[in-house]
């Protein structure tokens, strides 16, 4: 029970921790305060409780695939929010230091903070609900209590530690590089969201299912620790289908194109 509780908690915590560390590092670079972190934690925990306690009802929606659809919608929501965040951030960065331009840092700050709160809240809601379900299911038998608690502590600590180290890595970089790396990671996390959402929709039979395109599980198994990390970070799948891979690619390319387009526009008309 220990190992599985470690894996379950780690998978959920790691995703949130990575997202948070990127956001916090970027906030720091932009000179925002960290009040939004407390808000997202608070709202996210409330959301997780509500979702976790009502998952029974949610599951019954759409002929028994409500859970998949809800999760997929949350993930698509996160994706769109991240997309918006990246665009606003790019506008902020491209416009600063240019003559005759409004100070976007000030005007766009509320929007950026709002998006961070929404994204973090959604992420915690989805992941926290699963942790809550797991915890209440497993601890019903006394046999596993110690093992599960130990496992949850270990998994949570590992996830948070990685988040911290990641944050300090990002904030040790200079402004330009921390923005570039932060944005790239965000693009990967966002694309991973699309891939996961598409997978859920395939599972719910909302998207057509297909034979997998390839199988890289021999090369990097999704079960392995690195596989889990890659899953959280870039949405690694060993056996994706064409739709999933296509959507992942789109999820990856769209923000890059939009950011490059913005850069192009600002370079043309400064």
């Amino acid at each position: 029970m220990l190992l599985s509780s470690v894996i379950i908690i780690l998978r959920e915590v790691l995703e949130a921790a990575l997202l948070f560390s990127i956001f916090i590092a970027l906030s720091r670079q932009l000179g925002f305060d960290f009040k939004w972190v407390a808000w997202s934690l608070f709202l996210g925990l409330i959301g997780a409780m509500i979702y976790g306690l009502n998952i029974d009802a949610v599951s019954q929606w759409y002929d028994g695939v409500g859970q998949e659809v809800t999760n997929a919608l949350m993930q698509l929501g996160i994706y769109l929010m991240l997309l918006l965040y990246m665009l606003l951030l790019s506008i902020t960065l491209f416009s600063t230091g240019r003559p005759n331009s409004i100070n976007h840092k000030k005007t766009l700050k509320p929007a950026l903070v709002f998006i961070m709160i929404i994204v973090s809240t959604l992420a915690i809601t989805r992941e926290g609900a699963e942790v809550i379900l797991y915890f209440f299911s497993v601890t019903r038998s006394e046999n596993h209590l110690v093992a599960v608690l130990t496992g949850m502590t270990i998994g949570g600590s590992i996830g948070i530690s990685i988040g911290f180290l990641f944050y300090y890595f990002l904030s040790s970089l200079n402004f330009k590089w921390s923005i570039i790396i932060g944005l790239s990671l965000m693009i990967m996390v966002a694309a991973a969201m699309v891939s996961q959402a598409s997978l859920l929709l395939i599972q719910a039979d909302w998207l057509p299912s297909q034979l997998p395109l390839w199988d890289t599980s021999g090369w990097l198994s999704e079960r392995s620790a690195i596989g889990q990390l890659m899953y959280a970070l870039i949405g690694y799948e060993a056996t994706p289908t064409a739709i999933q891979a296509g959507l992942y690619l789109c999820g990856f390319i769209v923000p890059i194109l939009l950011i490059l387009g913005l850069k192009f526009k600002y370079n043309l008309y400064p």
């Binding site: 470690v6 270990i154 590992i158 530690s161 990685i162 300090y168």
Partner: peptide, 22 residues
């Protein structure tokens, strides 16, 4: 910085090796 980074690293190493041992 020192406290968090050292603690995180130690936690990571200790727990990963504990898991390995497990």
């Amino acid at each position: 910085f020192l406290i968090i980074v050292i603690l995180s690293t130690v936690t990571l190493m200790a727990f990963l090796s504990a898991l390995n041992g497990y």
